[in-house]
C-alpha cells in the first residue's frame, strides 16, 4: 500500500505546487497515517479542492489543534481508503483560517470545537459559537498553553 500512498501524497504536493507556486510543500509520513502534507493558510482551500476534486478524498476524520513548539498548528485528517493529513501552521496573533463548512458540512462541529478550545477564528463559518463549553464560561480558550499557565490550574 505504501507506494500507492506516496503517489497520492506526491500527487497532492505536485498539484499544490501548481496552485501555489511560491510554496514548497513538505511531504512526510506519520506512524499509522499514510501521508502528511504541509500547506500555508491561504493554501488550505486550494488543497481541499485538489483532494475533493481530483482524488475524491472527502472523509474528514477530525481537525486537531496542537501547539507544537509554540506554534499553533491545525491538522486536517482526511481518509478515503488511505489517510492523508494537511498541516497548517497558523499565524500569530490573528489565528484565522478559512472555514471548510461550505465544502464539507461535516467540518462544522470540528471547527466549533477548535474555536472554543484554542480561539481560532474560522472565516466564513455560518454559526461559530461554542460547542461544549457552558454558556457562562469565563476566561480564554481553555486548551491554550498560555491560558493554562495563566490560571495555573491543574486537572490533577
Amino acid at each position: 500500500m505504501t507506494t500507492n500512498d506516496e503517489r497520492i501524497a506526491e500527487s497532492v504536493a505536485v498539484a499544490l505546487r501548481e496552485v501555489l507556486p511560491d510554496w514548497e510543500p513538505t511531504v512526510s509520513t506519520m506512524p499509522m497515517d499514510d501521508a502528511w502534507v504541509s500547506v500555508p493558510v491561504d493554501g488550505l482551500i486550494p488543497a481541499l479542492e485538489v483532494l475533493l476534486g481530483r482524488f475524491d478524498i472527502r472523509h474528514l476524520s477530525a481537525i486537531t489543534a496542537d501547539e507544537i513548539d509554540g506554534v499553533l498548528v491545525l491538522l486536517y485528517h482526511f481518509w478515503e481508503g488511505e489517510g492523508i493529513t494537511l498541516r497548517v501552521d497558523l499565524q500569530e496573533p490573528e489565528r484565522r483560517i478559512p472555514t471548510l463548512v461550505s465544502f464539507l458540512p461535516g467540518a462544522d462541529f470540528y471547527e466549533r470545537e477548535v474555536f472554543e478550545m484554542y480561539g481560532v477564528t474560522f472565516d466564513g463559518h455560518p454559526d461559530l459559537r461554542p460547542l461544549l463549553l457552558p454558556d457562562d464560561w469565563e476566561g480564554g480558550p481553555p486548551m491554550r498553553r498560555s491560558a493554562i499557565e495563566e490560571t495555573g490550574e491543574s486537572g490533577r
Binding site: M30, S61, T64, I68, L75, H77, G83
Partner: peptide, 30 residues
C-alpha cells in the same frame, strides 16, 4: 513524535492523535 490511530468502534470510526515530546505525559491527545 506524532501518531494517529483509527478503529471501528460499535458506532463507527474512532480517531486518536497522540503527540509525544519525550516526557512522561503525552503533549497532546485528540
Amino acid at each position: 513524535g506524532q501518531a494517529i490511530a483509527r478503529a471501528e468502534a460499535p458506532r463507527g470510526e474512532v480517531f486518536y492523535y497522540v503527540r509525544s515530546d519525550g516526557s512522561d505525559s503525552p503533549a497532546r491527545v485528540k
